[in-house]
């Protein structure tokens, strides 16, 4: 019975744009990444060190750095070296920026947010 309920919940929570579902499940799959993506969406021309980005996000550097690197791996952010200093910024690729716009716009809907939170928590298990 519990398994049927789980299945029902999962189906209900999967009821979103498949592109965004994949984005939440595989790319913005943590709350820190969600915060970072929202920050860079609101401030799209930000380019800075992990220490400063952590300050902007109001979080700890050790928590932010691996998440930023995963966003780089998933081609949402880009990382370049300025001298010896790694600098992070949102990718300039228009398709990815459009996808980020779509995700942030979708987050304005409470139902979408509930579903996204569900998938993030599920992915963290």
């Amino acid at each position: 019975m519990a398994s049927n309920e789980d299945d029902f919940t999962a189906r209900l929570m999967d009821d979103m744009d498949p592109v965004l579902l994949d984005f939440v499940k595989t790319k913005v799959n943590s709350f820190i990444k969600w915060d970072l993506v929202r920050f860079f969406h609101e401030n799209p021309n930000t380019a800075d060190t992990v220490e400063n980005i952590a300050k902007y996000a109001g979080r700890n550097v050790t928590a932010v750095e691996p998440e930023l690197d995963e966003l780089v791996h998933d081609e949402i952010m880009e990382k370049r070296l300025l001298g010896d200093t790694p600098i992070y910024q949102l990718v300039t690729d228009e398709a990815m920026r459009d996808l980020v716009d779509k995700f942030i716009s979708a987050c304005e809907d409470r139902h979408f947010r509930v579903k996204a939170v569900y998938h993030i928590i599920r992915g963290m298990r």
Partner: peptide, 26 residues
């Protein structure tokens, strides 16, 4: 910004200094 006439860039003095001194920086 959408029209490509403006950019509001957030960065730090240390990064902007290194960036503008480099060739082909942001």
């Amino acid at each position: 910004e959408k029209k490509g006439l403006l950019k509001v860039v957030m960065t730090s003095p240390e990064v902007s200094r290194l960036d503008i001194e480099s060739v082909g920086g942001m």
